[in-house]
Design a binder for these strands. Structure first.
Lengths: 171, 171
DNA sequence: ATTTTTATGTCAGCCTTGTTGACTTTCCAA
DNA sequence: TTGGAAAGTCAACAAGGCTGACATAAAAAT
């Protein structure tokens, strides 16, 4: 209802054909299908190990920011503490994650991957990166820049912050 | 383990900096965060109406290809028939989807949205398109082309087929 | 004409991962 | 010293995946 309907003509000289409902629909489907491919490889590995996608996400972000506390992780993952806690507990029990009591604020738990955790993270992200790398290589650097730009625009602004802050990569 | 590790230098003249592990990790996180934004608006609408994301997906693809049969939908959505059936049954009970017995092959059910179904589809896709349109507009046509190209490369080839066949848009 | 295969639906039961609500423990800070 | 934030726990529940088994109708093959 925030829309001007389906019939759209090119307006100014810029040609806004890429904003037609049909083009948008194709983008939406591309997101849907691509996300499936994006998660397929890690999912296969996780299934063998009695873990799920939620474990992967926790492991990923603990690996990216070692020593992060539970609250921060909660905000990044966008789930409830009860939901995260269940996942975290199994990872700690299985010796993949270590929760150290905070020094300054002893209520906080700082999360770290153990050696075994690092190893699983490696296995999962190697698989995911392999597919990503193949896609990047096939599409080329200019396409990748556009890909990243559009995705950033689709994010919740709050998450965009976490995204930009995460890691020390030279963009 | 299909990787050459983190330390990567620019090789040929082409500069393969966009293929570093760090760049790939940022792409992976971009996918994760953006997918959340991508589904946030429809999810909000669906929650009010006692439906979930699975209903949205079914409605979307029935709307895109009216008269499609259950098997095709199964292949596109990548779920089991039991899972789809549960969703489909509620949609039919609620009068959003109609299942007509096939004329040539009377085993098949051809699926159509009713007027009420079309209306919900509109509401959901308007919300989703609005965000997509804002992202497209902010990123610009060249970025959108790259976005689509990378996503296509990430898809399962089997799904890529469905993706390309779907709809009659002039790409 | 009979058998087999295909398309679909359905029942039962399981798992993961999300939710809300209530409650406790710890401990920083006003 | 007391209020409240951070963290953890327990219980109950729902959505939406999954497998397996089975039923029915109709098409296709023999």
């Amino acid at each position: 209802m925030a829309d001007r309907g389906t019939a759209q003509q090119p307006t100014s000289g810029e040609s806004l054909l890429f904003l037609t409902d049909d083009q948008l629909r194709r983008g939406i489907e591309a997101m849907f299908f691509a996300y499936r491919g994006f998660t397929a490889d890690p999912d296969r590995i996780l299934a063998e190990k009695e873990y799920g996608r939620a474990h992967h996400r926790a492991i990923h972000f603990i690996n990216r920011s070692p020593g992060t506390n539970v609250n921060t992780l909660l905000a990044i993952l966008g789930v409830t503490k009860q939901s995260l806690n269940r996942v975290l507990r199994t990872l700690i029990e299985d010796g993949l994650v270590e929760a150290r009591v905070g020094k300054r604020d002893r209520r906080e738990r700082h999360l770290y991957l153990t050696d075994a955790g690092v190893e699983l993270e490696r296995e999962l992200s190697d698989a995911q990166r392999a597919r990503m790398r193949a896609a990047y290589r096939a599409a080329g650097p200019e396409a990748v820049a556009g890909f990243r730009l559009v995705l950033e625009q689709m994010m919740d602004p709050e998450l965009l912050r976490h995204y930009r802050e995460g890691g020390e990569g030279q963009t």
